[in-house]
Amino acid sequence: MSSLPAFLANASPVFVAPMAGGPSTPDLVMAAAQSGHIAQLAAGYRTAEGMSEQIRTVRSDGTELFGVNVFVPNPSPIDPDIYRRYAETLLPTAKRFAVPGLPSILEDDDEWEAKIGVLVNDPVPIVSFTFGLPDATVVRRLRAAGSVTMQTVTSSREAQLASALGIDVLVVQSAAAGGHSAILDPTRVPVNRSLPDLIRDVRSAVDLPLIATGGVTDAHDVRTVLEAGAAAVAVGTAVLRSPESGASSLHKDALANPTYNRTVLTRAFTGRPARALANQFVIDHDADAPAGYPALHHLTKPIRTAATAAGDASAVNLWAGTGWKHATTAPATNTLAALADY
């Protein structure tokens, strides 16, 4: 079984998963690093310059143990008629939040080339990929620049495809994870199986070090997945309510609100399967939501933004893993230390 690169192996085996859209702040990354844990900045939905600014902030504190996660362009193009029909179902919700109009189809690549250019020219210790597989040339460029490369996968087949590209480390994500599934075919949903079973399956298919993520809530979970063959675990929802997290207060409060009693995998917000608390938006729109990322992300963004500004969690993407009830407002370092006490 392959081992983690030395600087990763010497860190705590409890990492912080990158969470795009705000939660993964430089403060969270720096706090984790200061206590021997590895965390990553989330470049998704940021400009290349915004990503660079966060890297500079982390480095200004002297932090050397960190990474950057980028979204690989892997669009699921949507038929204009299907897009229009879904947009029409959203109009009552848009009206409720005084959103004047919904956007036309936008299929962008999240400034992929610019971000890779920055990371090659100003290397960081870790670069991880989500949503799609990068070209092997990109992997070689980043490795030549000195970065350890990671790929998020959800199955043994995806793991084999990533391994063939020369990726250094695999992040194995179960369906229990909060936020977007990293499944490579965004028209499907990940198979619902336990994280230890998934780790064992991937372990039998590839000889790369594995980081387990999705539904890890306590030290027992950590011990179980490490015994299954993972070299480390990565948690997200567990630190989502921490002071260092950049999640909105609306999101943090919703995670502790007993009104929300279940999570679901839904395409309603972005057209890509993502696990969220089942709020009114999910109830109203999940059944109608087609596959179509990133077009649906841009379509629903004005509604989500207006709902957040109004302090109304009923129409906000409340990403949460299945263990969301265990998330507390404790400092991230306290939560990570408790998880590492296995």
Score class of each variant (00 low, 15 high):
residue 141 R to G: 05
residue 36 G to L: 07
residue 81 D to K: 07
residue 25 T to S: 15
residue 188 R to Y: 08
residue 98 A to K: 14
residue 25 T to Q: 05
residue 294 P to A: 09
residue 87 A to S: 13
residue 314 S to N: 15
residue 238 A to D: 01
residue 140 R to N: 13
residue 153 V to D: 00
residue 151 Q to P: 03
residue 97 F to I: 04
residue 212 A to Q: 10
residue 223 R to E: 08
residue 128 S to V: 01
residue 253 D to V: 12
residue 33 A to D: 06
residue 212 A to E: 02
residue 22 G to P: 01
residue 28 L to D: 00
residue 4 L to W: 01
residue 120 V to N: 01
residue 136 A to L: 13
residue 178 G to H: 00
residue 262 R to S: 15
residue 188 R to V: 03
residue 86 Y to L: 00
residue 284 D to Q: 14
residue 341 D to A: 12
residue 162 A to W: 08
residue 176 A to N: 07
residue 74 N to M: 05
residue 267 R to C: 10
residue 40 Q to S: 14
residue 274 A to Q: 11
residue 142 L to Q: 01
residue 280 Q to P: 04
residue 133 L to Q: 11
residue 38 I to P: 01
residue 273 P to A: 01
residue 230 A to L: 06
residue 173 Q to W: 05
residue 244 E to A: 06
residue 107 E to S: 05
residue 220 H to R: 15
residue 190 P to H: 07
residue 25 T to I: 10
residue 164 A to F: 15
residue 101 G to W: 14
residue 90 L to W: 04
residue 147 S to C: 04
residue 98 A to N: 09
residue 195 L to W: 04
residue 268 A to R: 10
residue 295 A to Y: 04
residue 122 D to L: 11
residue 180 H to D: 04
residue 15 F to Y: 11
residue 129 F to G: 01
residue 281 F to W: 15
residue 157 R to V: 14
residue 115 K to H: 05
residue 55 I to E: 03
residue 213 T to Y: 12
residue 336 L to A: 06
residue 226 L to K: 03
residue 41 L to N: 00
residue 286 D to Y: 07
residue 193 R to G: 05
residue 162 A to H: 03
residue 219 A to V: 14
residue 109 D to K: 10
residue 148 V to I: 12
residue 147 S to W: 13
